[in-house]
Amino acid sequence: MAVHADDIEALGWVILASEIEMQTARGTEYFDIYEGRVIVDGREFIVPVHVGSELPEILLGRQWLSLMKLVIDERNGILTLEYVGE
């Protein structure tokens, strides 16, 4: 999961590491890593969250799709993320 730095303050998540260098499509970027708590279908997941200042929106990585079913209904503007198991 990746979140913009402005959004992280309100969540109260714990920082695990600062200024971690990573390669992105735009080149080298630096991220802080937080311990995030996300609830999907009433189940809580603890996930690493990459936090940076150049992220335009919240991003979910491909690893989520091994546990979740993603359905996009673009016509009605609905995105559904459903827990399907491990």
Rank of each mutant, 00 (worst) to 15 (best):
E19H: 11
I78R: 12
G52W: 02
T24I: 10
L16H: 03
S53E: 10
L11Q: 11
I20W: 00
I72C: 09
P56K: 06
T24V: 09
G36D: 10
L11S: 09
E86S: 15
Q63F: 04
G27F: 07
E19L: 04
E44H: 03
Q63W: 04
A5S: 09
E21F: 00
S66E: 10
I58T: 13
W13Y: 11
R75Y: 14
S66T: 09
D41T: 03
Q63T: 08
R75Q: 14
W64K: 01
Y34F: 08
T28A: 11
R62S: 12
G52E: 09
R62H: 07
Y30G: 04
I58G: 03
M22F: 06
D7Q: 11
L81Q: 07
V84F: 13
D7L: 14
Y34H: 11
Y34E: 07
A17G: 00
S66I: 04
Y34R: 02
E44Q: 11
V47T: 12
E35H: 12
N76W: 05
L60Q: 01
I46F: 15
D6Y: 10
V51N: 00
L55H: 03
I58K: 04
R75P: 03
I8D: 00
V3S: 00
P56D: 11
L81V: 15
L11M: 14
V51K: 00
L59I: 01
I15E: 08
S18F: 03
E19K: 09
E35W: 05
M22N: 05
L81S: 08
H50C: 04
E74R: 15
M68R: 04
D41P: 06
S66Y: 11
M68E: 01
R43C: 01
R75L: 13
E35T: 12
L16I: 09
I46K: 14
E21Q: 13
L81P: 07
I78K: 15
S18G: 07
D32R: 01
A5H: 10
N76I: 08
E74H: 08
E74N: 10
E54W: 03
V84H: 06
T28L: 15
G85T: 06
I39V: 15
W64N: 03
T24D: 08
G52D: 08
Y30H: 15
E54Q: 14
I72M: 14
G12K: 06
V84D: 09
V14R: 12
W13N: 03
N76E: 15
L55C: 06
A10G: 13
W13E: 00
L70N: 05
I33A: 02
G52K: 02
Y34C: 06
I72A: 07
I33S: 00
V40M: 04
W13Q: 05
E21V: 05
L79R: 07
G27C: 08
I20G: 01
L70W: 06
H50R: 01
E82V: 11
G42V: 05
I72R: 07
L11P: 01
A2Q: 06
F45T: 02
L79F: 06
R37Q: 14
T28M: 11
I20L: 05
E9M: 12
S18R: 14
V38P: 03
Q23Y: 05
A10T: 08
G27M: 06
G52Q: 01
L65F: 10
T80G: 08
G27Y: 03
L65N: 05
G52N: 05
G27H: 11
I78G: 06
D73G: 09
E44D: 13
E54H: 11
S53C: 07
G36K: 02
